[in-house]
Amino acid sequence: MSSYASQPISQQRESGSQRSGEQRPIASSTVSQNNEPERRQSSRSTETASSRHHRSDRRRPVIFVIYYSMYGHIERMAKEVCDGVESTGCECRLFQIAETLPAEVLAKMHAKEKNSQIPIIKAEQLPEADGIIFGIPTRFGSTPTQVRALFDQCGGHWMSDALFGKPVGVFFSTGSIGGGQETTALTCVTFFAHLGMIFVPLGYKNKRLQSNDEVHGGSAYGAGTLAGDGSRQPSELELDLAKSQGHQFAKVVKKLAR
């Protein structure tokens, strides 16, 4: 009996085909082509899983809310700004600016005791943020000495471009409507421009800013409150504007941080 006859049927067919000159490589190529869609689908699934893993590992943008508050108005606004920031999924870190006045002077000014639970910001920490919002009470229509002292410590950041391209915003408080609601913000823009920061205003996204039903602070430059003689606290409308500013600002930071 021949060796061919002793082989299994499948091997006989294969041997017969080879003897008849059938091009087996072509059949193999056909099978490969038929499996191509499956391989592509598998590749897409792997890429999709990798992409999801990459997105899940992506760091949340970090936003610093940094304020100076002598009577508590800006501190109250700052907490609403933080709520707005966190509503977008960004990480918010709250800081206060160091006091420069001696205790005896603050006592004569009836200043509120500082919140010891909120850390003091250091100039060298600023580059750690993806975006920064400053809360500033006005001083003769401009920024007070305490805030200027922090700004003046940023010479190294100016030289190294450490803050270049970072979004920045401002919210504020004044004693009255004409007490510097807009000039306080405008006097900060020169500092932001020199460091190459991107000023993000409040704008009029929240239409309550245009309300004339009640006296309130705030402008297109940022959320604001009216302190009066110190006894008036931020109104519900002013707090809503502060929260809106935090929310809208954080959305800009998230887009730039992609």
Rank of each mutant, 00 (worst) to 15 (best):
residue 176 S to Q: 06
residue 93 R to Q: 05
residue 125 Q to W: 14
residue 24 R to I: 14
residue 74 I to S: 01
residue 53 H to C: 13
residue 171 F to L: 02
residue 118 I to F: 08
residue 218 G to E: 11
residue 71 Y to V: 13
residue 154 C to T: 15
residue 244 S to K: 02
residue 20 S to A: 15
residue 84 G to Y: 04
residue 69 S to Q: 03
residue 1 M to K: 13
residue 25 P to N: 15
residue 177 I to D: 12
residue 196 G to M: 09
residue 94 L to K: 03
residue 168 V to C: 06
residue 92 C to L: 00
residue 191 F to T: 05
residue 94 L to W: 01
residue 101 L to G: 10
residue 166 K to N: 13
residue 128 E to G: 09
residue 237 L to E: 00
residue 64 F to K: 06
residue 55 R to L: 13
residue 65 V to Y: 00
residue 109 M to F: 08
residue 220 A to L: 07
residue 174 T to H: 08
residue 192 F to N: 02
residue 24 R to V: 09
residue 256 L to H: 03
residue 65 V to G: 09
residue 89 G to H: 02
residue 200 V to H: 00
residue 159 M to Y: 13
residue 64 F to Q: 00
residue 129 A to N: 04
residue 135 G to K: 10
residue 19 R to D: 10
residue 80 E to D: 15
residue 112 K to G: 05
residue 100 T to S: 10
residue 174 T to W: 09
residue 104 E to K: 06
residue 122 K to C: 10
residue 149 A to C: 10
residue 32 S to D: 12
residue 227 A to N: 11
residue 135 G to T: 03
residue 26 I to N: 14
residue 119 P to S: 05
residue 89 G to W: 00
residue 8 P to F: 10
residue 234 P to Y: 02
residue 144 P to S: 00
residue 67 Y to D: 00
residue 235 S to N: 09
residue 154 C to N: 01
residue 165 G to T: 07
residue 152 D to V: 06
residue 33 Q to W: 14
residue 136 I to S: 00
residue 17 S to G: 15
residue 163 L to Q: 06
residue 114 K to Y: 06
residue 53 H to K: 13
residue 92 C to A: 09
residue 43 S to C: 09
residue 52 R to T: 02
residue 203 G to A: 01
residue 190 T to G: 11
residue 218 G to A: 05
residue 121 I to Y: 02
residue 99 E to D: 03
residue 93 R to H: 10
residue 30 T to A: 15
residue 74 I to V: 15
residue 122 K to G: 04
residue 57 D to V: 11
residue 65 V to N: 01
residue 16 G to V: 06
residue 56 S to A: 15
residue 201 P to W: 02
residue 140 F to V: 13
residue 160 S to V: 04
residue 1 M to P: 12
residue 71 Y to W: 10
residue 15 S to F: 12
residue 65 V to K: 03
residue 247 H to E: 15
